[in-house]
Design a protein around this nucleic acid. Structure first.
Length: 354
DNA sequence: GAACCGTGGAT
DNA sequence: TATCCAAGGTT
C-alpha cells in the first residue's frame, strides 16, 4: 500500500470558495469604516513603537497596555535609551503587566538590534524572529504594522475568526490546527495594504467575532462564514481541554527597620524572575510570628502565602548567604519592580502599621 | 509536546 | 465566585 503514511489521520485541509483577494478586500473595506485607527502605537507606527506595543500586548488586553505603553515611551523614547537603561528601571516600568521575561527580552532586543543592526530593524520574517522575545506572530505583526509589508499573523483573534470562518474542528491550540491556521494566514494575507489588513483582522476578532456572543449581524464576512452558514458559530473554536491547577504554599519574611525593608532579588528563573520581593523561605521559620497572609492565582498554580516575622535575635545576617538581599529605603520602593501581590501586601501592611 | 510564565477584564 | 482568555514566546 502506498498509504502506509496514515494519510486519513492527517488534519483535513481547510478550504474556502472565497478567493484570498476577495477576503482581503472585505476586511480592508470594513477596517476603513469600523476599525481602530487611534491606538497609541498607531501614531506613528514606527518599528520601535510597534515592537514595544506588540511585546506588551502578548496575552494582555489593549486597555491594560495603553498606560504602560505611554509611560514606557516617556522613559525610553527609542532603542538606544532602552538598550542603555538600568534593569531596575525597566522592571519598575513593567511591574504589574506580568510575564516579566517579556521586559527583559525587550531590553535584550534593543541591545541586539543596536549591536547587530546598528539600531535599525531587519525587514525579513526570518531575521525578525531572531530578535529576543519575537516569535512567529510578533515577526508578522512588525512586518505588517511597521513596514506595511507581507506579514501573516495568527493570534487569539485570528485563531477564533478563522476557526469559525473555515469551520476548523479540533483543539484550537493543537499543532494540527495551528498548522492549518498558519497555512491559511499565509494564503489569505494579501501582498498590499498589509498594515490595514492585519489591523482589520485583529479589530474584527476583538470587536465583532468575539469569544462570547459574537456580533454576526455586524460582520462583513457573515455570508461567507462556514460556521454561520451551518448555524454552528458557537461550536468554534472547539472548547479547550480544561486543566485543574495545583495549590502551593509559600512563606515570606517581613523585616522593616529604620524605615527600610529587607528584600530579596528573586532567582534568574521561575516565577517573578529577577524581581524584588519579600525574601521567600522553604518553610515556617523558627520562632516566627505570623504577620499576615495572602492568596494569588497564577496561570498554572494557586499560591497560598504566609508572611512571617522573626523574633529579634536574628538580626545579624551572614553576608555570603544573602548576596541577593538588600535593605531598601521605603521611599525607594517605587523605583524597583515588585510582584503585584507582594506590593499589595506590603502597602496594606505598612498602612496598618502607621 | 507540554509546561512554564502574570495579571486583570469580562461575564 | 468561578471561569475564560487576552496582538505568545521560551524551555
Amino acid at each position: 500500500m502506498s498509504s502506509q503514511k496514515k494519510s486519513n489521520q492527517l488534519p483535513q485541509k481547510a478550504t474556502h470558495p472565497l478567493k484570498p483577494q476577495a477576503f482581503a478586500d472585505i476586511v480592508l473595506q470594513w477596517q476603513a469604516l469600523h476599525g481602530r485607527h487611534d491606538l497609541p502605537w498607531q501614531q506613528p507606527a514606527t518599528p520601535y513603537r510597534v515592537l514595544v506595543s506588540e511585546i506588551m500586548l502578548q496575552q494582555t488586553q489593549v486597555s491594560t497596555v495603553i498606560p504602560y505603553f505611554q509611560r514606557w515611551l516617556q522613559a525610553f523614547p527609542d532603542l538606544h535609551s532602552l538598550a542603555n537603561a538600568e534593569e531596575d528601571q525597566v522592571m519598575a516600568l513593567w511591574q504589574g503587566l506580568g510575564y516579566y521575561s517579556r521586559a527583559r527580552n525587550l531590553q535584550k532586543a534593543a541591545q541586539y538590534l543596536t549591536q547587530e543592526y546598528q539600531g535599525e530593524f531587519p525587514n525579513s520574517l526570518t531575521e525578525l524572529e531572531q530578535i529576543p522575545g519575537v516569535g512567529r506572530y510578533t515577526a508578522g505583526a512588525i512586518r505588517s504594522f511597521a513596514f506595511d509589508d507581507y506579514g501573516p499573523i495568527v493570534d487569539g483573534n485570528v485563531r477564533r475568526l478563522f476557526c469559525r470562518f473555515f469551520a476548523i474542528a479540533g483543539a484550537p491550540l493543537s499543532s494540527a490546527v495551528n498548522k492549518q491556521l498558519w497555512q491559511l494566514a499565509e494564503q489569505f494575507t494579501p501582498q498590499n495594504n498589509n498594515r490595514a489588513f492585519a489591523q482589520g483582522l485583529l479589530d474584527l476578532g476583538a470587536t465583532v467575532c468575539t469569544p462570547k456572543k459574537p456580533n454576526c449581524n455586524d460582520c462583513p464576512l457573515q455570508s461567507n462564514c462556514i460556521a454561520f452558514q451551518q448555524s454552528r458559530v458557537d461550536e468554534f473554536p472547539n472548547p479547550k481541554p480544561k486543566k485543574t491547577i495545583p495549590l502551593r504554599q509559600g512563606h515570606f519574611i517581613w523585616r522593616v527597620e529604620n524605615s527600610q525593608i529587607w528584600l530579596q532579588r528573586r532567582p534568574e528563573s521561575g516565577i517573578w524572575a529577577r524581581l524584588w520581593s519579600l525574601p521567600e523561605v522553604d518553610g515556617v521559620p523558627k520562632g516566627a510570628s505570623l504577620v499576615g497572609e495572602f492568596q494569588h492565582t497564577f496561570s498554572h498554580y494557586k499560591l497560598q502565602a504566609k508572611v512571617w516575622q522573626h523574633d529579634h535575635t536574628h538580626l545579624q545576617e551572614p553576608d555570603a548567604n544573602y548576596v541577593d538581599h538588600h535593605w531598601l529605603p521605603l521611599e525607594a520602593l517605587d523605583s524597583v519592580g515588585l510582584p503585584t501581590p507582594i506590593r499589595q501586601f506590603l502597602q496594606a501592611q505598612l498602612q496598618a502599621e502607621r
